[in-house]
């Protein structure tokens, strides 16, 4: 562990120094780094079963192939990120196969069932846009060298997912009729899910260890604005209504509802007339969404039995 104090480390990082090894880290730095990497790894991993569920209803061989390519990429990104965690002294195998479903740190959005191919399209447009926004930040700003370098491949591939989502969203909306209605229905629950993805607003939570150590460079609200500035115009250009608009006076995107609000996962419906506190949101997140166990199980299902057999036990 570093001989430097936390303050000295932060000053060094402030001057643009990249951290390369655990020897250079303080306890606080390492803890914050592990926390942020675990969220990324778990998010990549749990997107795979949720996208797979949706890919089952792909309407053609070509669209199924695109969906599987996205799934393979996400598994690959998870692999890269768990490997980074292993290099920090964590046990990759335990992280993937040993934890309980509720211990995974993926956002609430990937605890939801993606039931149709159209939901995959909108997920690629909205959720992968959130992913790119969140990972584009450390790619530019992070003080941890190995993470920064790993994001070259990840960001490249996420661009294809985004394009997959955006192109199909446009095409299905141009076709109109039932296809467009399905996109609208998906957007109705996925858009606010994306808004929530970026967490608590800055006025409630400003300084975090992640920012102080420059693990990332932008605040929650800044990232949310970047996401909105991509997703709102995209949706509008498709003729899809989302509850947000650009406010000329404030020169930024604002939501048309009081944020945060209550969500009914069994109906996949946001209750826009029921504002809630952030404590209530955290409680909902902690309780996990309806597919948390199902998705984690689909990754872990065969591990234990196979390993027991391989090792000669039962």
């Amino acid at each position: 562990m570093a001989t430097l104090s936390d303050e000295a480390l932060k000053q060094k990082i402030e001057k643009g120094h990249l951290i390369e090894t655990t020897e250079e880290m303080t306890e606080g730095y390492k803890k914050a780094l592990i926390q942020i990497l675990l969220v990324q790894a778990d998010t990549e991993l749990m997107s795979a079963p949720s996208y797979y569920m949706a890919a089952r209803s792909a309407p053609s061989m070509n669209t199924r192939l695109s969906a599987y390519a996205v799934i393979q990429d996400e598994l690959g990104h998870a692999h890269i990120t768990y490997q980074l965690l292993e290099d920090l002294g964590m046990d990759k195998e335990y992280l993937i196969y040993g934890r309980k479903p509720h211990e995974f740190k993926n956002p609430y959005g990937f605890d939801q069932p993606l039931e149709t191919w159209v939901e995959l399209v909108v997920a690629n447009a909205y959720f992968d846009r959130a992913g790119i926004t969140l990972l584009g930040d450390p790619f530019e700003n992070t003080s941890y060298g190995p993470w920064k370098r790993s994001l070259v491949k990840i960001d490249k591939e996420e661009l294809f997912h985004l394009r997959h989502g955006e192109v199909w969203m446009k095409r299905l909306c141009e076709a109109g009729g039932q296809a467009k209605e399905e996109i609208q229905r998906a957007a109705d629950w996925m858009f606010p899910m994306g808004v929530e993805w970026f967490g608590m607003p800055d006025h409630l939570k400003r300084h975090t260890a992640q920012l102080e150590y420059k693990l990332k460079g932008k605040t929650n609200d800044e990232l949310r604005q970047i996401w909105l500035s991509a997703v709102v115009p995209l949706s509008e250009s498709c003729g899809i209504h989302v509850p947000a608009h650009f406010d000329e006076a404030q020169q930024e995107y604002v939501l048309d509802y009081e944020f945060p609000v209550d969500y009914d996962p069994s109906q996949k419906r946001w209750k826009f007339d029921s504002p809630v506190s952030w404590d209530q949101v955290f409680e909902r997140w902690k309780k996990r969404g309806p597919y948390n166990e199902i998705y984690v199980k689909s990754i872990q299902k065969h591990y234990k039995d196979f390993m027991a057999m391989l090792n000669g036990g039962n």
Partner: peptide
């Protein structure tokens, strides 16, 4: 052969 972007 498995090009995922044929449609595009």
């Amino acid at each position: 052969t498995a090009c995922p972007a044929i449609d595009f």
